[in-house]
C-alpha cells in the first residue's frame, strides 16, 4: 500500500459519496446516467467475488463491502426510489456496445481461464468504459450540474492516482499487472477531455458545466 493507492481509493470513495448524497438530498437523479451506475455495480460485483475466497486485509475487505453497498444503493435510488426523476430519454447509450466487446476480450485476454479470473478481467475492462453512458449523456444534454462534474473529477482523479500507484509499485517492488495497467490507462484517457472542461469551466465558478 502506498500513498498514491490510498489517495486513489479515498478519491474513489469521495466520488461515490458525492453522487449518493447528491441524489439523496436533491431527491433527484436528473443528469445522472443510471446505466453507468448499473455498470459500476456490475464492475464491483464481478471483481469482488474474491471476498468469499481470499482475505487480503481488513482494509481491502471493508472497502470492497463499502463500494458494493454504495453502488447498489445508488442504483436503487435511481431506478426505484426516484425513478420518476430518471432522465431516461437522455440516458440512451447502447450498453450492449460496451458489454459485448468487453465480454469477448475478457475471454481472449486473461491470466487464467477460470471463472474467477475471467470475471475479474471482465470487471477490469468494463470499468474502463463504464463511464461512457454518463459522458455521452452530458454531451447529449450539453450540460452537467456542478455536483455531477465534481463526481466525475474525483472518479478521474482516482484513476490518475492508480496510475501513479502502478509507477511507484513498478519501481519499488517490480509489480506490473498488464491487464489492469493497460485498461486503467485507457480509462484515464477518457477523462482527459472532461478534465479540460472541468478546469476551464467548473473551476471558474460556473454553476453548470456548459459544453461548447
Amino acid at each position: 500500500m502506498n500513498v498514491f493507492r490510498l489517495a486513489g481509493d479515498v478519491s474513489h470513495l469521495v466520488a461515490i459519496i458525492i453522487l449518493l448524497v447528491k441524489i439523496w438530498r436533491s431527491k433527484s437523479c436528473a443528469g445522472i446516467s443510471g446505466k453507468s451506475q448499473v455498470l459500476f455495480a456490475l464492475v464491483f460485483t464481478t471483481r469482488y467475488l474474491d471476498l468469499f475466497t481470499v482475505f487480503i486485509s481488513a482494509y481491502n475487505t471493508i472497502m470492497k463491502v463499502v463500494f458494493l453497498a454504495m453502488s447498489y444503493a445508488t442504483v436503487y435510488l435511481i431506478y426505484m426510489r426516484f425513478r420518476n426523476m430518471y432522465d431516461s430519454e437522455n440516458d440512451t447509450f447502447r450498453v450492449e456496445f460496451l458489454l459485448v466487446p468487453v465480454i469477448g476480450l475478457s475471454f481472449l485476454e486473461n491470466y487464467a481461464f477460470t471463472p474467477l479470473e475471467i470475471l475479474w478481467t471482465f470487471s477490469i475492462f468494463l470499468e474502463a468504459v463504464a463511464i461512457m453512458p454518463q459522458l455521452f449523456m452530458i454531451t447529449k444534454t450539453g450540460e452537467a450540474e456542478s455536483i455531477t462534474t465534481h463526481y466525475l473529477f474525483f472518479l478521474g482523479l482516482y484513476r490518475a492516482l492508480y496510475i501513479a500507484n502502478w509507477v511507484w509499485r513498478y519501481h519499488t517492488e517490480e509489480f506490473f499487472d498488464q491487464i489492469a495497467v493497460v485498461s486503467g490507462v485507457v480509462q484515464t484517457i477518457f477523462y482527459c477531455d472532461f478534465f479540460y472542461l472541468y478546469v476551464t469551466r467548473v473551476l471558474r465558478g460556473k454553476a453548470k458545466m456548459i459544453l461548447p
Binding site: 474474491d50 487480503i56 486485509s57 472497502m63 470492497k64 491470466y111 487464467a112 499487472d177
Partner: peptide, 10 residues
C-alpha cells in the same frame, strides 16, 4: 497465461 498474482488492489 502468466501466473495469477495476488490481487490486492480494489
Amino acid at each position: 497465461t502468466e501466473d495469477v498474482q495476488q490481487k490486492d488492489e480494489l
